[in-house]
Amino acid sequence: MTSVAEYRVHGSTPNPAPEEWGPFEWDEPRLGRQVAGEMTVFRPHGTSGSLQAGFWRTGPTAPGANPDGSHTIVYSSPLGDETAVVLEGSATVTVNATGEKHELVPGSVLSHPKGVELTWEVRAPYFKKYWVIWDGTDVNPAAPTEVTVVNHNDNPQEWAEYHFIEPAEGPQVAGELFFIREGGSTGTHLSGVWRSGKGIAGSDTDPDGTLRTPYTGVLGDETILLLEGEVEVRETESGRVTNYRAGDLIGLNSGQHITWTSKGPFTKKLWVITKDRLPE
């Protein structure tokens, strides 16, 4: 049985302390051991599969960077599919097998399938991204192979009301969402943007746009970058209450009952849901 401590909600501000950063080292299949920039991890695990999330940055003093802070990196995301969000700086990413190029600026969301080799040309003087890396054991026969880039500041027409069934409370309506990614290399791997607020659907929404939602993450672990607004998360079993604001990271465990309160007038988040089992 999972303990209360193991079910504790993960959280981080967008500015981890200096001592929390360390060199990013990994084994690149074609090139061997690599060191590039600095990373920090706020979510070291989930309830299934291999799930990690945190920040990565580079600049003039970062390992492997040029004196002006620019950086060239070959990276194939060998540890799993990566969802990355550019927070500061800009870069050009090239798919080495095809020559396809993508321009990354603040707000860009990069979906990088495991094993697809990219060359990153990071521009001076500084670059910072949020990342979620996921790998599972249940291989998806229709695994994606293409790199995609969108921007979370876009306002697509395909917003849809979020309807789901909460095991203890029954059918719920909680805000609106759209999908960025609906499948990965392994297991369940979904990502998208969600919003709530005045005039947006919700089973328990106040006139000022505040929305309260019971939630146990029935689809899997959820890893969140809060884009706008403020949120309170109340953990039902422990009674612990944590407040988050735009820029913060939140990690929810599948099966842990919480009450999610999005404060009015508006809240928006980027979410990644993962589970070591293919969607039914």
Rank of each mutant, 00 (worst) to 15 (best):
G192V: 02
K198A: 09
W194K: 07
S3E: 06
R8N: 06
P18G: 12
P113C: 14
V93G: 01
S70A: 07
V41K: 03
Q256W: 03
V139M: 15
L190E: 01
Y126C: 02
I180F: 02
E38M: 12
A142V: 14
E230M: 15
T145N: 13
S203V: 04
T148I: 01
P171F: 13
T213G: 03
L225F: 02
T210K: 04
G220Y: 08
L226G: 00
L31G: 11
I180C: 01
A174Y: 06
G136T: 06
T188L: 13
E228H: 13
G264Y: 12
A36D: 09
V173M: 14
D68I: 02
A142C: 12
G229P: 06
E166Q: 15
P167R: 12
V193M: 09
P106R: 02
D81N: 05
G187M: 04
G255R: 08
T40Y: 06
V105L: 08
P60M: 08
A246T: 10
D208N: 13
R277H: 03
G80P: 00
L252K: 04
A17M: 06
W134R: 03
I224E: 01
Q172V: 05
A62S: 15
P23D: 13
E146D: 15
S12L: 06
V109W: 00
K101Y: 01
V218A: 13
L177K: 14
G11C: 06
T47K: 09
I180V: 10
H112P: 05
D208E: 07
R195V: 09
L226C: 02
S191P: 06
R8H: 08
R240P: 02
V9A: 08
P113E: 13
T98M: 10
Y75T: 00
A36H: 11
E100C: 00
P63A: 09
F164V: 07
S12H: 04
G89P: 00
V116I: 15
W271C: 04
Q256G: 07
V4A: 13
A160C: 08
E20A: 14
M39R: 09
S76Y: 05
G37I: 07
G199P: 08
T216P: 02
L177P: 00
G170E: 12
G197A: 10
K128P: 03
T94M: 14
I273E: 01
W56D: 07
A65P: 05
S203F: 07
P63Y: 09
W120L: 12
P78G: 02
